[in-house]
Nucleic acid binder design. Sequence first.
DNA 1: TCCCGTACCACAATCGATTGCGTCATCTGA
DNA 2: TCAGATGACGCAATCGATTGTGGTACGGGA
Lengths: 338, 338
Amino acid sequence: MQRIKLADVARAAGVHPGTASRALNPETREQVSPATVRRVARAAQRLGYVPNPVARGLRTARSFLIGMVVPDVTNPLFPPMVRGAEKVLTQAGYTLVLTDTDNDAATERRQIELLRARGTDGFIVATARWHDDLLAEIAAAGVPAVLVNRNTASAELPYVGGDERTGVRLAVDHLVALGHRHIAHLGGPADTSTGRERAAAFRQSVLQHGLPATDLVWACAAYTEEAGAEAAGRLLASARPFTAVVAGNDLIAFGVLDALARAGRSCPGEVSLIGFNDMPHLDKLAPPLTSVALPLAEMGAQAARILLSRVDGSAGGPPAQSLLGVELKVRASTAPVT
Amino acid sequence: MQRIKLADVARAAGVHPGTASRALNPETREQVSPATVRRVARAAQRLGYVPNPVARGLRTARSFLIGMVVPDVTNPLFPPMVRGAEKVLTQAGYTLVLTDTDNDAATERRQIELLRARGTDGFIVATARWHDDLLAEIAAAGVPAVLVNRNTASAELPYVGGDERTGVRLAVDHLVALGHRHIAHLGGPADTSTGRERAAAFRQSVLQHGLPATDLVWACAAYTEEAGAEAAGRLLASARPFTAVVAGNDLIAFGVLDALARAGRSCPGEVSLIGFNDMPHLDKLAPPLTSVALPLAEMGAQAARILLSRVDGSAGGPPAQSLLGVELKVRASTAPVT
DNA sequence: TCCCGTACCACAATCGATTGCGTCATCTGA
DNA sequence: TCAGATGACGCAATCGATTGTGGTACGGGA
């Protein structure tokens, strides 16, 4: 069972392979007479010709592959984004290549080099750090790329994320409405845009409500349960009074729950808690966690759309920043201050 | 910033490209003098040479792409397997292409056809149904493929999974040790090997303990919370007495929790519950869910290793079935019968 | 000294499709 | 009737790496 190649089709149609190539390619079809086009098309049909993307890619330097770079697929934040992106990409005839950097810069660089060597047409990157050399290089090299979820300081690349500031404001407003006046923020690492953005938004929201100035903003070392527990432990040890915590994300919130339990403080009885990202199944927790929901799938899809418009050259110009709407899911981890 | 090609390395080392190719390839290195190998290797290193897999693939008729097919990336069961597989594959110079079938047979077929046209060297498939035409075709066509997590009836392809039977036995043993004698099983769909296997193992375990014959085995329509709730609702409505449930997986267990709560039955007070897969963060639930843990990452890695050994032809022979060890994570959703 | 085997490497074909360029035939208009 | 324009297609180079074949230099044995 031999694979049919273009030369076979050409021979069957009685034309030169070059002509057959033009006849089969919609872009160049006009250079061939309609009659010949028909003959070639029919021969291709009859022989069951399937073009070889490898050979085509070698010549055209395009692979129809899009790389998506995430720090850790097992973090429930990313799979919905992957799905959203994949849907758009396959629709457009592209194939998504997922790569997991394990939160490691060296791995990330290696993986991206590998994919570039393979001729990947563009990247969707969810691993951006606030100062990111690798991404600066990519931007400088003119490789089509779109950031999702996390941005960089330089804003050289298009970015798709959630409206972090509004999310934080919704959280703070909700807590204030419940009577809280001593609200802490255990945010994400300062080398991520989300960590910085949410912390800044938190400070601003708190000030707007005229609450006591904020010596209650701490950055966790990572977006993990452990880092959250550690930071919450330090907050508790500091003996500063607080009745509510806005966590940098849900995993950090998990850590806060642990630390509160260990310290014998009840949630939401003594401390209200709000997470970020609205991971699945938060409603099953004890207590069900109030959280800010981001439109993850839509973020992935939007990033893919923007990337494609850059890949096929139809969109140039300065990189756009697009912020999608968020929503506060109120559950039982927040309660009126007693 | 032009890409370095083999010819550049050859020129820098003062040899012919063909020689450079042989020097860089471990298979053919012996045909080149050690001194030359060193010169070429050093030049390649210095110039930062990265071979072009597309060109190589054109000549060798290999793409170095491996497709991994999962029903739904957002199901926490799959990301760890993806990670495990990816690690092994990139190590071996392959690139993983992830594709999400959305639990839809038509989508699955389309995606796989697409990847085959692209020259994908093999597949890791986690979507197998018990009777699966598509996989039968693949096996017949001789496309290298490995099943993971779910098997087919025909067993034509290598399979890597958890030791389901032992997992179920551990669960039942645990419940029996707590004094339960009326144990129900709300299993997965019968068109999946996991659903069938776990149900069969459940029946066997129950019989071995001499418990009353089991009219308490029900198959849910899907591995979802909704299907679990629905099945649990029917079980409750049937008024059959039971004090414990072994769920087909954790999502089904979630549904059971919902149904119990709606029916005013407490867990673990009145009904003990055990899940399957040990999703992350089950310890944060109310109540923390006892569950059977599968070595997901290792399953993915093992599947990748088996696939690679088939792709490079070093392993032929009949398809092997490999069952990895499982573990029962005991938490608070199981309690002595009162 | 001559011959032959061996080791090492260069040359060029090859994988399959794309594409710039050249050629031929046909058509148009003067 | 002929120059020039136009359309349709063939030719061959090209993408970058791999690999079968052939050639050269060196060594050892007679």
